[in-house]
Design a protein around this nucleic acid. Structure first.
Length: 421
RNA sequence: GGAGAAGUGGCCGAGUAGGCUGAAGGCGGCACCCUGCUAAGGUGUUAGGUGGAGUAAUCUGCCUCGAGGGUUCGAAUCCCUCCUUCUCCGCCA
């Protein structure tokens, strides 16, 4: 959520930045409501102040045994006026809040400007893509051949885009999870979190999934609970509506969770294999920082994710997303893309975003500044470290040998207990 | 799921015949003072949100005592609903 004060004070600037995202975006409506809202609040405040003092007067008069009938009647009338104004106040507050909740974050001024992903900029390419002499199989064929994943039966017990890991496949998936968590918690210094995967609407609103992206999520029928689309949601919200000490920052957390996405609107896209599915595993990195710490911590977080790809010896590149391609809540975002032979292209495996105080404002994530003693909003950021299913697919495809076996990356062997499949 | 108890500021904890209490007191935090060694003492200060005035320091209104409604001239204090926690029972991995 954007700060209404900033919108009020720099409307042209905010408008300009938002239009970099999408020319249709505008803050004019919120501004109009804001003016009206403040006017009503001032009026209501004045009446409330009057009621307060008059009521106290009644108390004193009664103590002195004076008759208070007329003044009581007067204040009762006042109460009616207040009630009317308060209704207006509530309505305008609500309206303003809803508008603010549906306005995306302002993109960082430094990021590439463009309407869509064609304006994204490749920042670096790591690892050489070697095309082998034999023809590489796609993971959706190879995993079935090797009985690592059962797509058909997954569909039978759930729906399309569901699947079952089996045997060494299940073991490999679990190995990847453990490997990621171990490196992040030891080498990179993150605290491990194992959060609920069902969260309430407030948490979903806090990180920006609600109210705009309701149709992307699975929701419980009779309860205010949603299946998380990413661990970002529960982990970022852990300290919601709290005031942290500056000493607690940066707060670095990592969490493994399954993630659930309805993939509404992506019919026909990535229909085969593990790339786009309704349930997948992910190890997430989340940080709460001060504004000053944020740029550096974001670079570090991205590096922490990249290092996973390097340790696994997977070729990848880092792409900086343009204003038209970054997510709703993000101010700046790097995508890490891993080489996938079956796509003959790089495919997103991690998305490392900074949100500024956009999420913090929604979630009530604050800290007290040591220097000034004042309360500020935290900055939040997160990134996949990494998406496990896509890592699985990348390993299977990139590490397949001519003889049909799949080598296991060295760093994973102690986790799998085998060195090839 | 059933019965009972409770939910106050960073923490602990006063506050029920409704009014001058946004809230005593303590702890903790911060600032200053005093004291020649790690200690102790004194004084002051210390909630969030949202408006208004001012370049600013700052001044000032309103809202908030789990959340939301209601009664009343006036509610932390009374009533209703919900949430959470604790105890007992039931169920259960």
């Amino acid at each position: 959520m954007l700060d209404i004060k900033i919108i009020r004070e720099n409307p042209e600037k905010v408008n300009e930045l938002l239009k970099r995202r999408n020319p249709e975006l505008s803050i004019n409506e919120v501004l109009d409501i804001d003016v009206e809202r403040r006017k009503v609040q001032t009026q209501a405040d004045e009446l409330r102040a009057k009621r307060k003092s008059e009521s106290q007067k009644i108390g004193l008069m009664k103590k002195n045994g004076e008759n208070t009938d007329s003044i009581q009647e007067e204040v009762r009338q006042l109460g009616d006026d207040i009630k009317n104004l308060e209704e207006k106040e509530v309505e305008l507050n609500e309206k303003q809040k809803n508008l603010l909740l549906s306005i995306p974050n302002m993109p960082d001024e430094t990021i590439p400007i463009g309407a869509d992903d064609s304006a994204n900029v490749v920042r670096k390419v790591v690892g050489e893509v070697v095309k082998p002499s034999f023809e590489q199989k796609a993971h959706w064929d190879l995993t079935v051949e090797k009985d690592l994943v059962d797509f058909e039966r997954g569909v039978k017990i759930s729906q399309s885009r569901f699947y079952i890991y089996k045997g060494k496949g299940a073991r490999l998936e679990r190995a990847i999870i453990n490997f990621f968590l171990d490196v992040h918690t030891t080498k990179h210094g993150y605290e491990e979190i194992l959060p609920p995967v069902l969260v309430n609407g407030a948490a979903m609103t806090g990180t920006g999934q609600l109210p705009k992206f309701k149709e992307d999520m699975y929701k419980c029928v009779d309860e205010d609970l949603y299946l998380i689309p990413t661990a970002e949601v529960p982990v970022t919200n852990i300290y919601c509506n709290e005031i942290l000490s500056e000493d607690d920052l940066p707060k670095c957390m990592t969490a493994y969770t399954p993630c659930f996405r309805r993939e509404a609107g992506s019919a026909g896209k990535d229909t085969r294999g593990l790339i786009r599915v309704h349930q997948f595993n992910k190890v997430e990195l989340v940080k709460l920082t001060t504004p000053e710490q944020a740029p550096e911590e974001h670079e570090k977080l991205t590096r922490d994710a990249e290092e996973m790809l390097e340790m696994l010896e997977l070729p990848y590149r880092r792409v900086e997303l343009s204003t038209g391609d970054i997510g709703f809540s993000a101010r700046k975002c790097y995508d890490l893309e891993v080489w996938l032979p079956s796509y003959n292209n790089y495919k997103e495996i991690s998305s490392c975003s900074v949100f500024g105080d956009f999420q913090a404002r929604r979630a009530g994530l604050k800290y007290r500044s040591k220097e000034t003693g004042k309360v500020n909003y935290c900055y939040t950021m997160n990134g996949s470290g990494l998406a496990v299913g896509r890592t699985f697919a990348a390993i299977v495809e990139n590490f397949q040998q001519e003889d049909g076996t799949i080598l296991i990356p060295k760093v994973l062997q102690q986790y799998t207990g085998f060195d090839r499949i």
